[in-house]
């Protein structure tokens, strides 16, 4: 009964919901992200210790934050794939992995460029940086494994297992700056404490994090729609959607 429900109901339902959400996600994402970046670049006061190089934080923290939270979402979807065999969860993992790869790369790149004027080096093998590099390889591995297996169902299962194995890395990234006291500074935002920065710095940072979240939502919807169209092309509703236009 549940199998039947998921097979027939979900992809079509999601496709419609995504189509309705996407304009709002895109507009909200661009608006918040631009507000955060312009505020952070031009109006926030400069850091007393790091000078103006700290302005990289307004893209470094959002990309690093999203890179990890996208992986956590993928892990949740992997559990759903393995336990309930829900098609949509597998579609999510597959569609979102390249986005995670780009975000992780961006956080590493901006971190390296920020490190040069601040620490005097592009790269150190410190715990935070190394665990982030492993995250990059995990995303690469997920994409490669998915492409290597032709059968859709076995690919979904193998990818889910890989994603779940890799999830150990997330708490390591999270706590690396507290367990090993090396070059990377501690987190700017903590759930339990007030931010250690003045409001003129953390409000734009929060805006750009939220903006990037919405933009990620848009990208996820768009890429999932693509995947659903390809997988469901034999169904009546996809045919109607493609031939008539708006289904």
């Amino acid at each position: 009964m549940w199998q039947f429900f998921h097979k027939l109901g979900s992809p079509k339902w999601f496709f419609g919901i995504a189509a309705r959400l996407m304009p709002w996600l895109l507009a909200g994402g661009i608006l918040l992200l631009m507000a955060g970046i312009v505020w952070g670049l031009a109006f926030a006061p400069k850091d007393y210790l790091q000078g103006n190089s700290y302005r990289i934080i307004f893209i470094h923290v959002p990309t690093a934050f999203l890179a990890q939270s996208v992986y956590v979402m993928m892990a949740v979807a992997a559990v759903v794939t393995l336990v309930w065999r829900m098609k949509l969860a597998d579609v999510f993992v597959k569609s979102v992995a390249p986005v995670g790869l780009v975000l992780t790369f961006l956080s590493l790149f901006t971190g390296a460029v920020w490190g040069k004027p601040t620490w005097g080096t592009w790269w150190v093998w410190d715990a935070r940086l190394t665990s982030m590099l492993i995250l990059l390889f995990l995303y690469g591995g997920v994409i490669a494994l998915d492409r290597a297996i032709n059968d859709e169902k076995s690919a979904a299962r193998a990818v889910s297992v890989l994603v779940l194995v890799g999830v150990v890395n997330i708490p390591i990234i999270q706590y690396s700056v507290e367990w090993w006291n090396t070059l990377h500074q501690p987190s700017t935002f903590k759930l339990t404490e007030k931010p250690s920065m003045p409001a003129e710095m953390w409000v734009p940072l929060l805006l750009s994090v939220l903006g990037l979240y919405l933009l990620f939502g848009w990208l996820a919807c768009l890429r999932m729609q693509t995947e659903i169209l390809l997988r469901e092309q034999r169904t009546r509703w996809v045919k109607d959607y493609v031939l008539v236009g708006r289904g």
Partner: peptide, 8 residues
């Protein structure tokens, strides 16, 4: 940006 321009 006081010399940090290229990085930022």
């Amino acid at each position: 940006m006081e010399g940090h321009g290229p990085y930022v």
